[in-house]
Design a protein around this nucleic acid. Structure first.
Length: 422
RNA sequence: GGGAGCGUAGCUCAGUUGGCAGAGCACCGCGCUGUGGCCGCGGUGGUCGCGGGUUCAAGUCCCGUCGCUCCUCCCA
């Protein structure tokens, strides 16, 4: 009976993991350079963390979240994103008590029940940062600089990338904007889909990114959030843009940019690639000045972003950055001839590995000829150990690139192999 | 959520009007019994995604289903 994998859950096979490891390394290194420290939060949380934090009315919570009861009936969820968890941890451990800006980064799997396609799986992986504790517009700009810097570090062509920025205002601006929007949309209520007619009461902002054609047409003509910012939010947004210009970060203002998660306030942004298909967002983020308080902490402003690993991997390999290296990964491939040599060889292998030498041998009963073939593909050197060598307590080392061979004392190779491998 | 295309060997793919299941690569063997890459010859490998139906006969036609891909949408 053959059991298949679950739809939307992909295996990342060894041919692909070197690319992932490289991306993860670059991400960790760069985030450290900006003062972020890694936080690891659980994959499973109480479902209410997301319905409250991310928003009951969001598509992510409403339609895409994996929710299930545990054995005692507690409603749990596989995390669809990490910001709510990081903020939960921040509040739960009283990290605000340090009175300092807290900078976290994370890396890990997220889960959303969606229709899978290129760059969109049901289990996917995100990297992201959260800077919690400061309202400074310079911090918004720093976070965007970090995002852009990551792309530079991965040598992505800047022509293929673009940064979209918008401000959706603060909670104080929301009522005025919501009413402006509701007023406009109510006047055109007949053109809305049934779902959106309901949203008109509960959350008219969501109508802006409804997928129904009629709603989209209305959304294009609707009042814009940037036009109803309070003086403070206006000033904040102006300052963010000034900092972006100062940093030389090319960006475009997009008044229709609305993030899909309810916790965002003020600055929102997306870094997109022209090399992806319909899913062109490489990463997205913004401010969430109300979330800490919403989840039971003191009023605390914050900003961050999250990016998709799968999409990053697609774009990097599309630009040749993921070329699978055909470089041999082993230092030595042992080719023993005969049972006695094989026994001796196993001791040698164990010793080499304890000296930090990457070494392997054949376990498939291959002929000498075949074993040499495997050696040629996988290692820089073959170590041939047969009766002749064994009787003289020697071993033959063959450089598989040049074909050059030399015979050396076995004991010496075992205790100090490195000089022979240069 | 809506729409389209595609599922044949480990991989990439042929398969005509319904008539014996194919190629290249990979793998194994031999040429070459202690030396890889090149070459030649031979071989292993298939629930034709799965389940029904039509038919003397289905990889091929029909229905369903699962999966992948793309568009739309959503977002990372």
């Amino acid at each position: 009976m053959r059991v298949e994998g679950v739809r939307g859950m992909r295996d990342i096979l060894p041919d692909e993991t070197p690319l992932w490891q490289r991306l993860e390394e670059e991400i960790r290194e760069l985030f450290s350079l900006y003062g972020y420290r890694e936080i690891r939060v659980p994959i499973v949380e109480r479902a209410e963390l997301f319905s409250r934090g991310v928003g009951e009315e969001t598509e992510v919570v409403e339609k895409q979240m994996y929710v299930f009861p545990d054995r005692k009936g507690l409603m749990l969820a596989l995390r669809p994103e990490a910001t709510a968890s990081v903020v939960r941890a921040y509040v739960e451990h009283g990290l605000y008590a340090k009175g300092d800006l807290a900078k976290f980064y994370y890396l890990g799997p997220m889960f959303r029940y969606e229709k899978p396609q290129l760059g969109r799986q049901r289990q996917f992986h995100q990297y992201g940062v959260e800077a919690i504790g400061s309202p400074d517009p310079a911090l918004d700009a720093e976070v965007m600089d970090l995002a852009w810097n990551l792309m530079e570090r991965l040598k992505l062509r800047s022509e293929g990338l673009f940064l979209r920025v918008n401000s959706i205002g603060c909670r104080g601006d929301r009522p005025a904007y919501r009413e402006a929007l509701r007023g406009y949309l109510t006047a055109h209520e007949g053109e809305l889909c049934p779902e959106c007619r309901r949203r008109l009461e509960t959350n008219p902002l969501r109508i802006l990114d409804c997928k129904e054609e009629g709603c989209r047409a209305l959304a294009r003509e609707a009042p814009r959030s940037v036009d109803s910012l309070c003086p403070e939010c206006r000033a904040h947004f102006d300052a963010v843009q000034a900092h972006l210009r100062e940093l030389g970060l090319a960006h475009e203002l997009d008044p229709t940019l609305v993030r899909g998660l309810d916790y965002y306030t003020r600055t929102v942004f997306e870094l997109c690639s022209r090399d992806l298909g319909a899913q062109d967002a490489l990463l997205g983020g913004g401010r969430y000045d109300g979330l800490v308080e919403l989840l039971g902490g003191p009023p605390t402003p914050a900003v961050g972003f999250a990016g998709g690993m799968e999409r990053l991997a697609i774009v990097v390999s599309a630009q040749g950055g993921g070329a699978p290296s055909s470089e041999p990964e082993l230092d030595v491939y042992l080719v023993p001839i005969g049972d006695e040599a094989r026994q001796e060889g196993m001791k040698l292998l164990a010793a080499l590995r304890r000296r930090g030498i990457a070494a392997d041998t054949d376990y498939m009963g291959r002929s000498l000829r075949k074993a040499m073939g495997v050696a040629g593909r996988s290692a820089r050197r073959a170590a041939i150990l047969g009766g002749d060598e064994l009787s003289r307590r020697e071993i033959k080392l063959k450089d598989l690139a040049s074909g050059e061979e030399r015979t050396i004392p076995l004991a010496q190779f075992r205790t100090d192999p490195i000089p022979f491998l240069r």
